[in-house]
Structure formats: C-alpha cells, structure tokens
C-alpha cells in the first residue's frame, strides 16, 4: 500500500467561522496506480491534495505514505518527505522564472545533497524523458505552456519519487496541449509511476484508472473508469 489515509480531517478557522475542508476521508492507493480526485470547487480537493502532498498536516486522522506515518511529522520532516517521495505538477507550472529549464529540473536534487555532476546528469535524463533535451538552456518565458508543464513534469520525475501529484495540470493549457500532457502522464504511468491527478474536469479524470468524487470534504463515490479508456481506444 503506497497511500493509506484513515479518517482524515482538516479544519480551518477563518475569523469566527470554522471550516471543515476535509471531513473524514479514508482512501487507499496502491503503488503503480493512476488515480484522479474530482470535485467541484469548494469540495476540498485542493486541501486533500495538500495533505496527500505533505504540504500540510491533518487536524485529525492518520496518513501513511510508503510505510511512513507522515500525519504527525514536523515541517522539516515533511520537507524531507516531499523531496524524497513526491513530485508536484501544478496548474500554474510554478517554475523559477529566472532559471533555465535544466536548473529548474535540478532544484529538488539541490535539497538532498546530490553532487553537481550527478544533478546535471539526472536533470538531463529527466528532460529527455519529457522530450525537452533540446530546450535545456531556455528560461520558462522562452517556452510554450506545454513545454513549461513538461519541464515541471521533469522536475517532478527527477528524484524518482514514489508519487507524482498533479493539481489541474491542464488547467492553463489549450485542449490539444492538455491532451498531449495527459498522454505523457499515461506514458509515465505505463512506465511504472504512481500518479494522482486532481481536477474538476471529467474529460481529464477519465485518463486515470480510478476516480474519487469529492463533495463537501467527503468522498462521495469511487468509480473504476478503466473500461471507458479501453472502449475509447
């Protein structure tokens, strides 16, 4: 079991109001799975993604990632887990604007003490996986949206994480480019990576094998969509 959450809660206080963004979510995701988390805005999917991505700690409940109980970890321990186990892909790409594609991909390796030669080798390899080895020296503003997202994917892959976590990865892309990126996710999944995609679009969600529908902070239903993909082919 790669991911196991038990009765996960996240509660915020905004002013005098208490918001239960995630209310008792229990999910289990195996290594090598391709999962989508779907829901309308305000359904708590971003909060759930932050919890799964170890960017945030739950108010209550337990979260085990790759055999580690991460729900009670400190900030710095979470940073270590993010570095080692998780590769993020964001809707807005979140690349360092003044750094080259290569340096952006190198970034996670800087924070785990990889030597400079090894960093460059691994970063080049990751860029090759996303077919961008000829754009290494370009800065994000010299790249198209699709290329930027592929740089972000290379950055997510570079450390060989247990999990790739993508938050609306096609949200800022046109349909054709979005489809390209989703093809890339598909390929990475076939190569053995575990992928979780958070989205509000069913068209995107069905690229996955399994969809969790989220509403009001709870998992409303769970759907196996492998047959749709297969019939689509």
């Amino acid at each position: 079991m790669l991911i196991k959450t038990v009765d996960l809660w996240k509660t915020y206080t905004v002013g005098t109001e208490t918001i239960h963004a995630v209310q008792g979510v229990s999910v289990e995701i195996e290594k090598g799975e391709y999962v989508a988390i779907m829901g309308p805005s305000g359904s708590g999917k971003s909060t759930l993604m932050n919890l799964i991505g170890c960017l945030d700690s739950p108010t209550r409940g337990e979260y085990h990632l790759n055999g580690r109980r991460v729900s009670a970890m400190s900030d710095d321990e979470l940073a270590y887990i993010r570095n080692k186990e998780i590769g993020f892909v964001f809707q807005t790409f979140n690349l360092l604007p003044r750094a080259s594609a290569l340096h952006n991909v190198e970034l996670p390796l800087i924070y785990n003490g990889t030597s400079s030669g090894e960093r460059i080798r691994k970063a080049k390899e990751a860029l090759k996986t996303v077919d961008l080895e000829d754009r290494m020296t370009h800065r994000p503003n010299e790249l198209s949206g699709g290329q930027r997202q592929r740089v972000a994917l290379a950055r997510a892959l570079v450390n060989n994480p247990a999990l790739i976590l993508a938050d609306e990865p096609t949200g800022n892309l046109d349909t054709a480019t979005g489809a390209e990126i989703m093809e890339l996710f598909g390929r990475l999944h076939r190569e053995g990576n575990t992928i979780i995609i958070v989205t509000h679009e069913r068209d995107i969600a069905i690229y996955a094998d399994r969809i969790f529908y989220l509403r009001d902070g709870k998992v409303e239903k769970e759907e196996d969509v492998r047959h749709i993909k297969n019939s689509g082919n």
């Binding site: 710095d76 940073a79 570095n83 360092l96 970034l107 996670p108």
Partner: peptide, 10 residues
C-alpha cells in the same frame, strides 16, 4: 513556495 514544495527545509 516552489523551493519548499520540492523539499527545501526552513
């Protein structure tokens, strides 16, 4: 934020 997301500690 980006640096922290990819594993930078405090």
């Amino acid at each position: 934020g980006i640096r922290k997301a990819v594993g930078a500690k405090r």
